[in-house]
Amino acid sequence: MESVTKNRQSLESLRTMVERGFGPQQVPEGDGFATELTDGFFNALYQIRLADGKEVVLKIAPPAGVPVLTHEHDMMRNEIAAMDLVRRESSVPVPELFHVDLSREVCDADYFFMELVDATCFGIAADAGRLPPHVVEAGFEHLGSLNRDLNAIVGTHFGQLRGPGFGTWREAATTMFRTVLADGVRAAVDLGWDPDVVLKAFEDHADVLDDVIEPRLVEVDLWAKNSMMRDGRIVAIIDHERAMFGDPLMEAGLTGLDLPSFPDPAPFMRGFGLAALDDSQRTRRHLYTLWLAVTMLVETTYRQQSPQQYRWACEQLDIAMGLLGRTT
């Protein structure tokens, strides 16, 4: 995917990063050692072949001068913290980190090298029709089970892992929702709705957020495309940068409950251990769908995405507002 946030580097810069991470003996010769991985929306990714033939993945945060949403500042550091937390406190498989450089000396952004997982991206393979239906269904069920295990990790505050922390989920969620709306106003994003009306729709139902009393690790961005599959099983979870402590009901695998353009959530829910939602849970899920829809719509301007993506995001926001009793 194309995005102005992708911080592409010259071969010379990539060689310097390799030398910092693995030493001069691993700096590759020639020009064919780096292949850009283009499926992501935000960071630059390269598959790097070291001098000894070992393959690794290099992930680079956006350039310093490119505008990003407020919660996306230093987001790679949040991902590093999340990967460390998952590795320490769960058995959920995540790639090994080999080298982290936060100095911003080689380029104007954080970067890290991590393990190249020898597996297929589950979501891409499923969308391309390369997997039989029973494997896709089992994959979503397994993803739900892994997501449930991640949610078992309990934090000491609500909000982003590295802070700022909040004492209640209602305060954390409302603050973060207000912030993404403000990001949209700052970039003059036309939501198709008055931002104050969108905020009121959220806040009019925010009392249900008080039902969340324990801050659980929430991946937020755990779509099928952020999981790797081998022999019909998920063998790694990637892209932990948006993880926070909050309500597991905001996980991506449940989005299809509200938005029909997303995958059927039934197999995910089986693995997740969720049968039916009560009134509070249903309203909370609607709030998270609204939050996601606003974020996707605001991102179209910040990422300089296509008019088609903007129109699609507008449709999702209209649906989300309707779920909360607002109609155009």
Results as ranks from 00 to 15, higher is better:
2 E>S: 12
3 S>M: 06
3 S>K: 06
4 V>F: 02
5 T>P: 00
6 K>Q: 13
10 S>A: 12
14 L>W: 06
15 R>W: 11
26 Q>L: 14
26 Q>W: 08
28 P>C: 12
28 P>N: 09
29 E>N: 10
30 G>Y: 14
30 G>N: 11
33 F>W: 11
35 T>Q: 13
38 T>P: 00
43 N>L: 02
43 N>G: 06
43 N>E: 02
46 Y>S: 13
47 Q>N: 09
47 Q>S: 14
52 D>A: 04
54 K>T: 13
56 V>C: 05
61 A>R: 01
65 G>P: 03
73 H>L: 10
73 H>A: 12
76 M>F: 12
76 M>S: 07
82 A>W: 05
87 R>D: 04
91 S>G: 14
91 S>W: 00
93 P>S: 09
95 P>C: 04
99 H>M: 05
101 D>R: 10
106 V>M: 01
109 A>F: 10
112 F>M: 12
114 M>P: 07
115 E>K: 02
116 L>V: 01
119 A>I: 01
120 T>V: 14
123 G>E: 03
125 A>M: 02
126 A>C: 03
128 A>P: 00
133 P>W: 06
133 P>F: 04
133 P>D: 12
134 H>W: 11
134 H>E: 15
136 V>F: 06
137 E>D: 13
137 E>F: 03
138 A>G: 13
139 G>L: 04
140 F>S: 05
145 S>Y: 10
146 L>K: 02
148 R>E: 03
149 D>W: 01
151 N>G: 08
151 N>S: 14
152 A>G: 12
154 V>E: 15
156 T>K: 09
163 G>E: 03
164 P>K: 05
165 G>I: 04
170 R>K: 15
171 E>G: 01
172 A>M: 08
173 A>P: 00
178 R>Q: 15
179 T>G: 10
180 V>Y: 03
185 V>C: 07
187 A>Q: 15
189 V>A: 10
192 G>E: 07
194 D>E: 14
195 P>Y: 10
199 L>R: 12
200 K>H: 13
200 K>G: 03
206 A>D: 08
207 D>P: 00
210 D>M: 02
211 D>T: 15
214 E>F: 07
215 P>E: 08
217 L>I: 05
217 L>W: 04
223 W>G: 13
224 A>V: 03
224 A>T: 07
229 M>C: 03
231 D>C: 03
239 D>M: 06
240 H>L: 14
242 R>W: 09
251 E>L: 08
256 G>P: 10
257 L>I: 12
257 L>P: 05
260 P>R: 09
272 F>W: 08
272 F>G: 09
275 A>V: 11
276 A>I: 03
278 D>C: 10
279 D>L: 01
280 S>N: 14
282 R>A: 15
283 T>Q: 13
283 T>A: 10
284 R>G: 05
286 H>C: 15
287 L>A: 04
291 W>I: 01
292 L>P: 01
293 A>N: 05
293 A>Q: 02
297 L>M: 10
299 E>F: 08
300 T>D: 05
302 Y>V: 08
305 Q>E: 14
305 Q>A: 15
305 Q>F: 09
306 S>H: 07
308 Q>M: 08
309 Q>V: 09
314 C>F: 01
315 E>M: 13
319 I>S: 10
320 A>Q: 06
321 M>P: 01
321 M>L: 15
323 L>Q: 13
